[in-house]
Design a protein around this nucleic acid. Structure first.
Lengths: 205, 205
DNA sequence: CGCCTTGTTGGCAGTCACTGACACAATTCG
DNA sequence: CGAATTGTGTCAGTGACTGCCAACAAGGCG
């Protein structure tokens, strides 16, 4: 059949399970020996699959550790559907980001703890930062186009700068948050983000 | 001798010459067959060197086509020494960028034509954009630290956002410039940059 | 000019990320 | 159950990149 009416439950469940196992193994190995010293074979072995199968789940070894990062992007993408004209774009974007970041509950929720691990790793691993940037870039053009049309504009310059700039604030906030936690200092994610946003708005002095 | 007083002229000249030949070959091949379809062996053959030697000049094949990009970064880095307190940071950064971009003379100077070729390529080649971003990232932390200390601050949040945001405006401007030229539309680089800067300053509405 | 130090090059072998092709096994559907 | 679909492992291959070593070119020095 070309389009199965219902998703077969078992396959779907197993697929998710395997993906999770790979992601766990990758994150764990990256934390313990670093990205460079970890081979795809290592990850595959730890996850109990063949190297070939690894690449059927993730395009690169870095992507395996960035599942939480992608999940965040996807959540933002879904919420972006609600954006429209009437209110300043930056306000709306920041509202979306605040809502998404709130779900991390400052590292107390499961998702939050996971993101903290990933961001800590990213601080020390340029390869991961780069991979994350690549993943983000692929979504960005789509996002910009969608927002531009939702606002009824024909020039995407404004939306592009607003979206990239607000994304920049989030990235910086996540970095500082992870860095502070790594050093044992107290740090509130939403507060950090608010500070970054404020700086962005007052760039002009 | 541990520290030669004067650089031997011949070796230096040859090294520059070889680097230039590799860069030319890489840019040419990338334009004609795309980055993915071009191997290091191709570039090395076209430049008349061995593949092994290629990697003594450039760490990756993408870097070979990004010499102008790096040159721009280096110019900015040198000019950043003049930054100090007293005037709004963003104003000073924009002045640096304007000065550097002016040297391209909107594509009429040799450097300008070259940058236009590189930027056109980058529009179509994600691998090149990514490589450029990686090169930029390596300099960024250094830049931020230098500016932060030049301003006598102990928190780099402001400088980081200002530097990254103004870099963002430049990137967007270069993209639009190359895109317009590619489509045969008229486009002035400095004007485009001015527009992007204005948007950045009025993000808040 | 020979002598020595140092930088440059090419070849070779090796690692590792990633891909296509194929055979086989598990799952789903009728 | 049997047939179609989908997931998996094996294998062979490409291509980026690195370490090592031997040959050679260049510069400094007596």
């Amino acid at each position: 059949m070309l389009s199965p009416v219902s998703e077969p439950a078992l396959r779907e469940r197993r697929r998710r399970q395997t993906e999770r196992e790979i992601a766990d193994a990758a994150l764990d190995l990256f934390e313990r020996q670093g990205v460079d010293r970890t081979t795809v074979d290592d990850i595959a072995r730890a996850a109990g699959i063949s190297p070939r199968t690894f690449f059927r789940y993730f395009a690169t070894k870095e992507a395996a550790a960035l599942v939480p990062h992608v999940a965040l992007d996807e959540r933002v993408e879904r919420m972006l559907a609600e954006i429209g004209p009437g209110r300043p774009l930056l306000d709306q974007l920041e509202e979306v980001w605040r809502e998404v970041l709130t779900a991390f509950d400052d590292g107390r929720s499961e998702a939050g703890r996971l993101m903290l691990r990933v961001r800590r790793l990213m601080l020390a691993e340029p390869a991961l930062r780069q991979a994350a940037a690549t993943l983000d870039a692929r979504r960005l053009d789509d996002l910009v186009a969608r927002v531009t049309s939702a606002l009824g504009l024909d020039d995407d310059l404004g939306p592009r700068l607003a979206i990239e700039a607000s994304g920049l604030a989030v990235r910086v906030a996540l970095d500082r948050w992870a860095d502070a936690r790594e050093a044992g200092r107290a740090s509130d994610l939403l507060e950090t983000y608010a500070g970054a946003s404020r700086h962005l708005r007052t760039l002009g002095g």
